[in-house]
Design a protein around this nucleic acid. Structure first.
Lengths: 349, 349
DNA sequence: AGTTAAAATGTGCTCGTACACGCAAAATAT
DNA sequence: ATATTTTGCGTGTACGAGCACATTTTAACT
């Protein structure tokens, strides 16, 4: 039954005015050493914590946070991010949190840089981005450091020293999770492929980490005989991505399983069950087309990277820091959710 | 760039005093029909939303919430709940949220009822419980209804009409998830057991739902030949639970896999790898002993019921309702998290 | 000693809302 | 007609913190 002590309480107990207590709290000087000590002692004794409600009401400032995201008509993987932004706006709008959205074209590196610079030109208190282009992201991050803007990143890893906050998955470990699933899905002997598909190979390191984890798992668990083949696939000139995939499937018909390291597993599931020898598929992300194939049984498992949660948590971490001085951890690694046809629905929206 | 309009703004625009606007908002009467209409119109036009911060500061009321939980030295499954309570206290303490803990002995039905009644005797605004004993839980819930106390439940399902809020998992579906995992773990033919272990069988329906889901899955997916055996295990007089388990294992050595519907899977994993024919184990809950066996490979998968999240979300739903009038959904079904040796660590605390 | 600057402390308003109170005009009663 | 109640509205204070400004106390000079 402990009361929340106020500045007035502390002042009364020490025998000074609240102005003096306030000066001690904010270290604004003009207080004798002696009384400062007394005030501090009493504050400590009664565990004084300033009332964040009153604080907020008084300092009626607006906190602008800029967010740099891929434009809406690009990869549907990013769609849940927008819902997260709206949720934070709803929850914290009355606390003076203003979120400003900026969109870049993921196909055009230069747009990432230019829109990113535009986003921080208005001098927000914080800047959140998905650093698809790590070189450009670092340039923006450095500009933020100069102007004292907190930098948060999600989904893609960049050099920790450049940013204040990162949230995402441990990609190496997610590769291992995928491998552990294949391990129970395959027979005693199997040919497996790691398949990196992306229209543009921005995030090479992103895929490499997953690859490393996947290979390591089978290095350690040797009781099944597995051969791992690594393939990079990209839209070829004169062919659609679908044609490229069909071509790949024909050339590699001997594969028992394919680990698709991007959200494009549905491309391999398309065309469906050619025969009972169709390869086992494990991929990433709960995008609509993947879900459809998961339900059909064409994809065995998906790993959920939860972009919505990533955006929600990065924004709330920043917000709580500015509003309530809650320190945030420099790095947050989200769970590696294993999704199949029986549990996917609980992870949507 | 829309401003947040205040009562004062509205008053100025209408040409009345803030007192009048306030009376309209709270429907306290003493306002002429005519001006009331005008005020309402202007509020609607400028989308007036009362500032929850100021509101909270003024109405300095304390919201007492009572929580009924199993006492700490019982099943370790409940341990994460306490952390959730502390977190909510930290986050909402300054908003006047006070959480009062009450503990019952899960071995003694009567203690549930008596401590529960004690918990609501102090007339809290809300009451959260884990309704292990559904009959007694309904009695308490009815008492709450009479005295206008909001009733929230988690983990165990009770009649929806009796309570205001429920959070937990869809148990039928979680049985199906377990079955879908066995499906890929077993060979073409297999003998599987559903094993209900509990020192006391309070939550019979809890287990039945899981059983039903498990069986249904194999009814639908018939491409593997599975025989399902159902067993109830309970501490027998004169024997320790461990001895009972050993006895069960010896008598049922032919089993290829065992689905343990409670958090006691570790009991079957104990004694470890008797031979290469040891049964495949899938169980529930990330309690310490289960995790240890998961790492060792004695348990293949665990389904995470996330008691911490259950408590956290039920409390925050109530809190946001009282503080900010946020309506809560009557029922919230949490994801059925699939956990193995490679991803468990991200789900712990 | 008196004057003045500097240091230490107190006072009072503000943020937006809730609510008690006050006071005039209108409606009713005597 | 005057007294009294009712209706409709305005005023003012409080919640706790922050900050500008006022006031007192102490120190430092002539």
């Amino acid at each position: 039954m402990k009361k929340n002590y106020t500045i007035k309480d502390i002042a009364r107990i020490v025998g000074v005015s609240k102005g003096t207590v306030d000066r001690v709290i904010h270290q604004r000087g003009r207080v004798s050493q002696e009384t400062a000590e007394k005030v501090k002692a009493v504050m400590a004794q009664f565990e004084y914590r300033p009332n964040p409600i009153a604080k907020r009401l008084k300092k009626n400032t607006i906190y602008n946070i800029s967010i740099l995201l891929p434009q809406k008509n690009s990869d549907p993987y990013w769609l849940p991010c927008f819902a997260a932004i709206e949720q934070v706006e709803r929850e914290y709008g009355h606390f003076g949190i203003k979120l400003n959205r900026y969109y870049f074209d993921p196909e055009v590196t230069a747009s990432f840089l230019s829109v990113g610079l535009e986003a921080i030109a208005s001098k927000p208190v914080a800047f959140l981005m998905v650093p698809l282009f790590f070189r450009e992201a670092e340039i923006i991050a450095e500009k933020c450091k100069e102007t004292n803007i907190k930098v948060a990143t999600f989904n893609n890893y960049v050099n920790q020293s450049k940013v204040d906050f990162f949230i995402g998955q441990d990609l190496y470990q997610s590769g291992r999770v995928a491998a552990s699933l294949f391990y129970i899905l395959i027979k005693e002997k199997a040919n497996l492929a790691i398949l990196h598909i992306d229209e543009s190979f921005q995030n090479a390191s992103h895929m490499q980490e997953k690859e490393r984890g996947f290979i390591d798992y089978f290095e350690i668990n040797k009781s099944k005989e597995v051969k791992i083949h690594i393939h990079h696939l990209k839209k070829e000139d004169g062919f659609s991505i679908e044609e490229t995939i069909t071509n790949f499937k024909r050339k590699n018909a001997y594969l028992d399983g394919i680990f698709v390291t991007t959200s494009k597993a549905y491309l391999l599931a398309n065309g469906g069950r050619v025969s009972s020898t169709k390869p086992i598929l494990v991929g990433y992300d709960l995008v609509e087309k993947n879900i459809a194939h998961l339900k059909e049984g064409n994809i065995s498992f998906l790993i959920h990277q939860d972009p919505k949660k990533q955006v929600y948590l990065s924004l709330t971490s920043l917000v709580e820091y500015f509003l309530f001085d809650n320190p945030f951890r420099k790095q947050l690694l989200l769970p590696i959710d294993i999704i199949n046809a029986e549990n996917y629905s609980y992870y949507l929206a």
